[in-house]
Amino acid sequence: MEVRTIKVFTTVDNINLHTQVVDMSMTYGQQFGPTYLDGADVTKIKPHNSHEGKTFYVLPNDDTLRVEAFEYYHTTDPSFLGRYMSALNHTKKWKYPQVNGLTSIKWADNNCYLATALLTLQQIELKFNPPALQDAYYRARAGEAANFCALILAYCNKTVGELGDVRETMSYLFQHANLDSCKRVLNVVCKTCGQQQTTLKGVEAVMYMGTLSYEQFKKGVQIPCTCGKQATKYLVQQESPFVMMSAPPAQYELKHGTFTCASEYTGNYQCGHYKHITSKETLYCIDGALLTKSSEYKGPITDVFYKENSYTTTIK
């Protein structure tokens, strides 16, 4: 009895394709271990004539594949690729409408935090270190965002349907971005203890939790000093293409032309909904596939993004 075979390709990165001759009487799992086709788990399936010449994702289970996976995804987590594939199996079914010149995501599976993050990423200057993220990001900007969303979920250790947080998501993504040249110098002034300067680099240099107003941050924000008295913390120097200011959701007025974009969060910790506000020729609110415009805006804002380049204080 002759062994019926077909020729397929296996890959971990969709760049390096490895030619395989597979036995049609055995499952993919018996031949390769966990195997995925377009995100779908085909591990328990036997090869079919229609699979001839198709590319299958496999887990990096030998040295060659491990090197290829690390170079593309910059992670050695053995569960990463499987999590990416199972997320992709959902995100490829989502709709990605162009809204006001940006790629958004039609609401499904509690994905409003991903839509808000995706919209924000198209408006701030950011370059990702893992080629996987950078490639998928370019495709997302062009309207094909399924891979990018699935990668975000995998890097953030999230599953489809789980509630997510924009600030946490951005923080994970910033860790995989090139923020080497970003720098922030802060000064804390206390009447009792004097003053202390701190220099922050990388992710810490672009994120701040405690106030939404970048102007206020430049002037000074009140913080408790270690001595128990009130101290003032203010920005001395900022070198970065953008800054992200966050605070627990509270009524906040966004003035046209003073910011790049913002995240609105309605609801409580267990259950809520994100919308995205962007400042173009007027203010726009993007909620999944829905767009509304207004000249002014007041609502429960939790993150505001500002364009920056270089700032030095005039406070002496």
Rank of each mutant, 00 (worst) to 15 (best):
M1I: 05
V3L: 13
V3R: 13
K7R: 11
T19H: 10
T19E: 15
Q20V: 12
Q20P: 01
D23A: 10
M24R: 07
T27E: 15
G29K: 04
G29S: 04
G33C: 00
Y36H: 01
L37Y: 12
L37N: 11
L37S: 09
D38Y: 10
G39S: 11
G39I: 04
A40T: 11
I45V: 13
K46R: 13
P47R: 02
H48L: 15
S50N: 10
E52N: 11
F56Y: 06
Y57P: 01
P60S: 08
N61P: 07
T64V: 15
E68T: 08
F70S: 14
E71D: 12
Y73K: 01
D77H: 04
L81G: 05
L81W: 04
G82C: 09
S86A: 09
N89H: 08
N89I: 08
K93G: 04
K93M: 05
W94Y: 06
K95T: 11
Y96A: 06
Y96H: 04
V99H: 08
S104N: 01
I105T: 05
A108K: 04
N110A: 04
L114P: 01
L118P: 06
L119G: 07
L119F: 02
T120P: 03
L121R: 06
Q122N: 02
E125L: 03
L126C: 08
F128I: 01
P130R: 02
A132G: 14
A132E: 02
Y138I: 08
E144R: 10
A146L: 03
N147Y: 12
A150L: 00
L153V: 09
L153A: 01
N157W: 00
T159C: 15
V160R: 03
L163E: 10
V166M: 11
V166I: 07
R167P: 05
T169Y: 01
T169S: 03
M170G: 00
M170W: 02
S171R: 14
Y172R: 11
F174S: 05
N178D: 12
D180S: 11
D180K: 09
S181R: 12
R184W: 09
R184H: 04
L186G: 06
V188C: 07
V189R: 09
C190K: 05
T192L: 10
T192A: 08
Q195G: 10
Q195P: 15
Q195K: 10
Q196E: 09
Q197W: 09
T199N: 11
T199H: 08
K201S: 09
Y208A: 11
M209G: 10
G210V: 03
L212S: 04
E215M: 06
Q222N: 12
P224F: 12
T226L: 10
C227W: 03
G228H: 03
K229P: 03
K229D: 13
Q230A: 10
A231F: 02
A231T: 02
T232A: 07
T232Y: 06
T232Q: 12
K233Y: 10
Y234G: 05
L235N: 06
L235S: 05
Q237H: 12
Q237L: 13
Q237I: 11
S240P: 03
S240I: 05
F242W: 07
F242Y: 04
M244D: 09
M245N: 09
P248H: 10
Q251W: 04
E253T: 15
G257K: 07
T258Y: 07
F259E: 06
C261A: 07
Y265G: 05
Q270W: 08
G272C: 07
H276Q: 07
T278S: 09
T278R: 07
T278M: 15
S279Y: 09
L283F: 13
C285S: 09
I286L: 07
D287Y: 01
G288V: 00
G288Q: 08
G288I: 00
L290N: 11
K293Y: 09
K293R: 12
S294G: 10
I301F: 04
F305P: 08
F305C: 06
F305I: 11
Y306S: 05
S310D: 13
S310V: 14
T312K: 13
T313K: 14
I315L: 13
I315F: 13
K316Y: 13
K316H: 10
K316N: 15
